[in-house]
């Protein structure tokens, strides 16, 4: 038995019994309540038209594509972005978002005679890299500028990336199949070996 296994066994012996008596009964109550609560990204959407939705979906899949694990579309990110743009972004941010989306649609129509989602992935990536290059002076890219609510004057491409990444990693698929999630870890061990294939935990301390 190695140290980690020993600690796991010890922790189960010490805390498992008691917490199961008190904790699990209540956890079942919570499980029922939580199961009944709909996921946020199941909410009704009404901000975008179908063409805009296709563009947003294609863009977030470029940010977080499906690989051997789910991608942004699998995780419901397009709907998350529309919901956030509806009433989480403020008026100024929503204006930037909708104008950026309209600009992209117009330039794709002019340059390619098609819509963004009809381009191949390499063309889509090139267009988004171009948007990122033009936005690169934004404070959004500043080192460690992540502990804040939002950068209100961030360009469209930055908004799109931020909402995609947040929406993805806090979704059920992203949080459990790409990151790792354990609502009831039952013990703390501060020295567990980390292998390269292992992901971060989803939970952040509040």
């Amino acid at each position: 038995m190695n140290r980690r296994e020993f600690l796991q066994c010890a922790a189960i012996l010490v805390s498992g019994a008691s917490a199961s008596q008190l904790g699990v009964a209540l956890t079942q109550e919570q499980q029922v309540y939580l199961a009944a609560a709909p996921d946020y990204n199941q909410g009704a959407t009404r901000l975008l038209n179908d063409a805009q939705r296709k563009t947003i979906a294609a863009m977030c899949e470029i940010v977080i594509p499906r690989t051997d694990t789910p991608g942004a579309i699998d995780a419901g990110v397009p709907r998350f972005i529309e919901l956030m743009a509806t009433d989480w972004l403020n008026d100024e941010e929503r204006t930037i978002f909708l104008a950026g989306l309209a600009d992209l649609e117009a330039s794709v129509a002019a340059d390619y005679g098609s819509s963004f989602d009809e381009l191949d992935a390499a063309q889509q990536l090139a267009l988004m890299e171009d948007l990122e290059a033009k936005a690169s002076e934004s404070s959004w890219y500043d080192f460690a500028n992540t502990r804040r609510d939002f950068v209100s004057d961030a360009p469209f491409i930055c908004q799109l990336k931020e909402l995609t990444i947040w929406g993805f990693f806090t979704s059920e698929k992203g949080g459990t199949q790409v990151l790792r999630y354990n609502a009831m870890p039952m013990y703390f061990d501060g020295d567990v070996p980390l292998s390269p294939d292992q992901s971060s935990w989803l939970t952040r301390l509040e």
Binding site: I62, V63, I64, P65, T67, G71, L125, M128, E129, E132, S136, W140, Y141, D142, A144, N145, T146, R147, C158, K161, E162, I165, W166, F169, V178, L179, L194, P196, Q198, S199, S200, W201, R204
Partner: peptide
């Protein structure tokens, strides 16, 4: 431990970004 929530404002796209953000 830094993670995606402290490093999401990186440049780049796609599988490599996803892989970088996944790991501690």
């Amino acid at each position: 431990r830094m993670d995606w929530s402290t490093g999401f404002n990186a440049k780049g796209f796609g599988a490599s970004l996803k892989e970088d953000l996944r790991k501690p």
